[in-house]
Amino acid sequence: MYKISEFSKITGLSVKALRYYDEETILTPACRDSETGYRYYSKEDFAKAQRILLLRSLDFSIAEIRDVLENCRDDSDLTCYLEEKRTMIQNRILKEKELIKKMNLYIKPNDREEKRMNYQIEVKDIPSVTVAAIRYRGKYDDTGKYIGKLYKAVKDQGAGAPIQCYHDAEYREEDADLELCLPTKKLIRHPDVEGKTLPAIRAICTTHVGSYSKLNMAYKAIFDYAGENGLACLTPSREVYRKGPGMIFKGNEDGYITDIIVPVSGGVA
């Protein structure tokens, strides 16, 4: 058994760190003197300390280290945790790159997509369309979970670009009321999708070219037009993805083409 001072020296962990890990139940000493309260560590504790040092060097948080130590039984388990952490870091890097890209738009204002876009607004009658549909609640980027199922159900009866219907008037982060539709040549009957007809509507329409992250500017142009012309915007609004990501690759986001369709009442067409 090792005294805490000895254990500190052989592990490279300070006494302060060892006491902290004890409090956090990450590295509890094998035994404690009931009279003096002195901590004593075993050879098994040394192996655990080595693992903690490894995880610390790989930027694992205290909560993550605890989770690994509680559930890791052997090297194969550890490999799985390291692979999962690597994926988390890779995703974080991607998000940070997106943040840098967004910052650059403001460092170089002339590059802003919303400045380049000149939205052409139209008020027109949209005819009814037969679709296969899946309605769900979730996040806006959950579309990929359902689009494959739609195409599989429709097979060779597809008749146009995918349409996303937004049944909420406001922006919702977690539980948006969404309906993904695929136009069809005829009414589809399938257990996984609903065959239906989207009704004819009068709507304000525009086309957005570029990343989905800037679609809000197209909606702003529509709402501005509605306000200036005495039109009341209704739900569900629609987005028609005339050109977008593939099933596997995202492709060039700057080339995405999305039609925005917002039903309206009032005013004069």
Rank of each mutant, 00 (worst) to 15 (best):
E122S: 11
I188S: 02
G230E: 07
K220Q: 10
P109E: 09
V264I: 15
E84P: 00
K220S: 11
E170I: 06
I201D: 13
R172G: 03
R32G: 00
G255W: 13
E228Q: 08
L53K: 15
R92W: 06
K149M: 10
D77A: 03
R238F: 04
S42N: 04
Y166N: 01
L53M: 15
L105G: 11
L150Y: 06
C181K: 00
E96R: 07
Y166H: 06
C165H: 04
G246S: 09
R238G: 03
K16D: 09
I100T: 11
T25L: 12
G255C: 09
P236F: 01
Y166A: 05
D156Q: 03
P183V: 03
D125N: 15
A63D: 14
F46V: 06
S8G: 10
K149N: 12
M217N: 13
K220E: 11
I121Q: 04
V15C: 05
P29L: 03
E239R: 06
A17I: 06
L54D: 10
Y151E: 04
K149Q: 15
T130M: 08
I147E: 02
S34F: 07
L82T: 05
G12D: 11
E239L: 03
I248T: 01
D168K: 00
S213C: 01
R137I: 02
R137A: 12
L231D: 02
D142I: 03
L18F: 06
K145N: 14
K145Q: 02
Y146I: 02
I10T: 12
V240F: 06
L198V: 03
L105S: 13
E174Q: 11
Q90P: 00
R112K: 14
V193W: 01
T197A: 12
G246N: 05
T197S: 12
R112G: 05
